[in-house]
Write a protein that binds this DNA or RNA. Sequence first.
DNA 1: CATGAATGAGAGTTCATTCAT
DNA 2: AATGAATGAACTCTCATTCAT
Lengths: 194, 194, 194, 194
Amino acid sequence: MDEGGRKEEILKAAQTIFSQYGYHQATIRMIADQAQCATGTFYLYFVSKQDCFLALVETLYTHVMEQIMLARSGIENPSEKLKRSLEAAVDVFRRDYELAQVVLVRGAGADPLFEERMWRVREAFSEFIVSDLIECGVPRPQAVIGAHGWVGALAEIVGVWIRRDQDLDLNEAAQEIQRIFWTAWGLNDFHSAS
Amino acid sequence: MDEGGRKEEILKAAQTIFSQYGYHQATIRMIADQAQCATGTFYLYFVSKQDCFLALVETLYTHVMEQIMLARSGIENPSEKLKRSLEAAVDVFRRDYELAQVVLVRGAGADPLFEERMWRVREAFSEFIVSDLIECGVPRPQAVIGAHGWVGALAEIVGVWIRRDQDLDLNEAAQEIQRIFWTAWGLNDFHSAS
Amino acid sequence: MDEGGRKEEILKAAQTIFSQYGYHQATIRMIADQAQCATGTFYLYFVSKQDCFLALVETLYTHVMEQIMLARSGIENPSEKLKRSLEAAVDVFRRDYELAQVVLVRGAGADPLFEERMWRVREAFSEFIVSDLIECGVPRPQAVIGAHGWVGALAEIVGVWIRRDQDLDLNEAAQEIQRIFWTAWGLNDFHSAS
Amino acid sequence: MDEGGRKEEILKAAQTIFSQYGYHQATIRMIADQAQCATGTFYLYFVSKQDCFLALVETLYTHVMEQIMLARSGIENPSEKLKRSLEAAVDVFRRDYELAQVVLVRGAGADPLFEERMWRVREAFSEFIVSDLIECGVPRPQAVIGAHGWVGALAEIVGVWIRRDQDLDLNEAAQEIQRIFWTAWGLNDFHSAS
DNA sequence: CATGAATGAGAGTTCATTCAT
DNA sequence: AATGAATGAACTCTCATTCAT
């Protein structure tokens, strides 16, 4: 059948509501209304409000990781891999606009539990970059700091993009950020991949 | 001493509680307990929970701006001004550890009102950087993106530093971030100012 | 039976509690306890405590107006219409003992909003009497004052009746009040309608 | 000295505040501000908020009774005594506008305790009228009901007068009410006293 | 599976009252 | 006598969660 229906419907509704109201302002009632179901139905698919929010965080994480893996497959050159990875991540944010808003903007101070999870995601993402940078010849200490900086820079850009209702070319901005870090590390094959 | 100021006591307590629990998990009762006063006393000094939180946000903002102004006074060289501004900001975060945590980490998704306020602060900070960069000869479009990226990178570094309980040299990291952006824009007087 | 209607149950409980304690001494918990439900349930049916109280005021108002309309239907003689109207009103108070107590006795100084509403009701009732009196040939200025006086006299009688736990023949008293005003205005068909 | 100062000042302030906001909306703080003293000072003169309110009720009661006594002194004719008593009472209300508002309008549903006191006052006033009426030859049962009706009618008129900000000739209205009851009881010396 | 009425713990907030100064 | 900062009990209202249907 067209199963996968109900839970995904509710997740979609939750995403919309959370992105609009934030975690605490959003109520189960709102989500249920948006999903056109009863509040009780929500609890058939999710243990709690938290559980549902975390599911969204996981979804974004999974999407990002999937796309990154896809973008890297078959590429040997480490700087090219890194470049494509970042492009893939930004692409996911651009396509999953609402989801990115929920996780990157609304999730931050919502709850210590989410923060924990979100930081693990960022950390994971950073370590990814770190290993690529090391392969590119950047010494580990600088690579670690640079990776965090890069993640932060990207998140800020995405945040600005979301807040300004996309009145900013996310791709262009992401490329400028990339150029900055690229130049700083003397990775000279920058223009070959554009 | 004499006063010490009841309001400051409560602000200090609020800072501690908010930094530990986040805005929504924190309760007025917790704050009052921490400040060793009754809940009613809290309301002698603050109109509401929100009001108190915003007061903390403003405090950090004021501290940062004060220190930046101080660091810039008498400096002519634009890249030197920029460098000192950022160092001053990072210094405030390092000294006001808890406060930075409340505002930068917990405040984000807590409430639409706070988000609004925090983004305005970040925006203000960015525009600061933008004007210095332009003075340094960076074209405006790149300056804008770069400034946002820089703010994001710094915030992330501070976030990591806070989360890891300061197990990271914040100064060193901030300098590495600075080096990255500096190099990317070809600002060659970097070492002359150290 | 089936329902009985949760809302009606709560209204009944509120009526009992309000009549006993007055608006401000009554708490939502008292009402919920009386209605044998949780406090949250109260808020499924009423927006606020005020809303619930006003609902009771409206109920009495509606009952009175309904019965008055019924009593007047098909009657031509203006003094007869007036007489029957007043009897109908008194009848409602006698039957809806508690409700009358809530609205007429407890509602007065409880809240500016209620006062406003209650005075509008009394005003409406007065204007009713005024128009009948004018039809009976009483000049408008006297009719207006007389109508207010009549309403006040009746309210006082009902108040006394309620306070003395009905140890007073309300009907008899109302008729004596009527006789007084009737005589004063020389309406001589008094006995023809008894 | 000009003692009698402080307590009377606070009573005056309380009267103003209670008349404007009603018993429950009024706060000790408001009264203290109006009296230009500290909240603690309030409690030097009154045991509680209730105590202060009751003092106002007593004040009005005393004023009314004093004036009535004065108006009756030396008068023999019972209907004349009654007439002058009522005129004296209405006069007090007219002069002590605010106080009348506090007691007659705001005090009603404020608190079971006040209601109790207020009803005793009204009862006392009624019994006054009753005894005069009996002297005038009105049979006791009718006199009792009539007296209550009269009190109610007067209170309503005063209420309307207060609510409409005195846009109504209170004296005239009171006289019309008097005429009504007078005529109803066949007291024919009405015009001799005007 | 689905419902949505019912729950009740717990939040923010107010304000009459006290008491050290 | 006068102060006003401090108190804390008690209130109204919210909303995540449950469960009988």
